[in-house]
């Protein structure tokens, strides 16, 4: 840490805050709503994260070549699994975005305070081993920054995934109206190779980060796996992140035509 400078969290502020109100009124109805909001944001986040992992395996069928991909896609469409799923994910996506966004401070100034504090806590002790204590805590503290990146990746997902979802929903709608199939390897490959790989690459990184950190956060919030302790939970989160990120990079490389489908031999002959 560059300690020659004033920590950033305090640089902007001249004087710490003054008095706090002594009396405080709580509205039970508002409190009740908060619980529902919290459950809604957590449950939709969980559902979306699990869906994204399933989604990875479905798209991953491209590793077995166009034949495998088409087989999976056509099955899902013929049995009317794909169509309602697209609609359900769209709803989950919107509900999650609205519910989760309520935690993000509205003012730029507030977000700056959060970010600066997060940076200081994250910088503390780096390159100075004397500060590290060998207990269950994070020193330097990383999690405030993780949350800030949770918000940032969420915002990017909101924009990019909306595009992806609308594209797919319109394909499904068209196919339902006119007959035929919405998802087809030839069209998908052409799209990705035509430049959409850039969008999907950014989306991949953001979604994998957001999903694994989000699941870690859920575990922390509700005490799942509390016996493992934060370090172990954090390690699990990182393993999941790199696992799915690695898988995603391979799948995207095949979709973009940079890599031949490595499992194509499975469906040969």
């Amino acid at each position: 840490m560059n300690t020659n400078t004033t920590p950033t969290s305090l640089r902007a502020k001249s004087v710490p805050r003054g008095d706090r109100p002594a009396s405080f009124v709580v509205d039970p109805a508002a409190a009740r709503r908060q619980v529902w909001y919290e459950l809604a944001s957590g449950a939709t986040g969980l559902a979306l994260a699990l869906f994204m992992w399933g989604h990875m395996f479905l798209v991953g069928s491209i590793l077995t070549g166009e034949k495998g991909f088409n087989w999976v896609a056509h099955m899902l469409e013929e049995y009317f699994i794909a169509q309602p799923t697209v609609a359900a994910v769209l709803v989950l996506f919107i509900v999650h975005a609205v519910m989760a966004a309520r935690k993000v401070p509205g003012q730029l100034k507030e977000r700056k305070v959060m970010r600066d504090l997060g940076r200081d806590l994250n910088a503390y002790g780096k390159g100075f081993p004397g500060m590290a204590r060998g207990d269950e805590r994070f020193q330097p503290h990383v999690e405030s920054m993780l949350w800030i990146w949770q918000v940032r990746t969420g915002m990017i997902i909101l924009v990019l995934a909306s595009f992806h979802l609308i594209l797919l929903a319109s394909n499904v709608f068209e196919a339902t109206m006119q007959g035929g199939l919405a998802i087809d390897a030839t069209r998908t490959l052409a799209r990705v190779q035509g430049g959409l790989w850039m969008l999907y690459a950014v989306l991949l990184v953001c979604v994998e980060f957001h999903a694994s950190v989000g699941l870690y956060r859920l575990a922390i919030k509700w005490g799942f796996g509390a016996r493992l302790g934060r370090h172990t939970l954090h390690r699990i989160e990182q393993v999941l992140l790199w696992l799915f990120l690695g898988l995603g990079v391979v799948v995207l490389a095949v979709l973009a035509g940079w890599l031949p489908a490595p499992l194509e031999f499975l469906l040969k002959g």
């Binding site: 508002a30 409190a31 908060q34 909001y37 997060g118 999690e143 949350w147 956060r217 919030k221």
Partner: peptide, 13 residues
């Protein structure tokens, strides 16, 4: 209340 446990975002600082 949102000033209580649900105001917290679990950053564990």
């Amino acid at each position: 209340d949102s000033e209580g446990v649900f105001g917290c975002i679990g950053m564990m600082a």
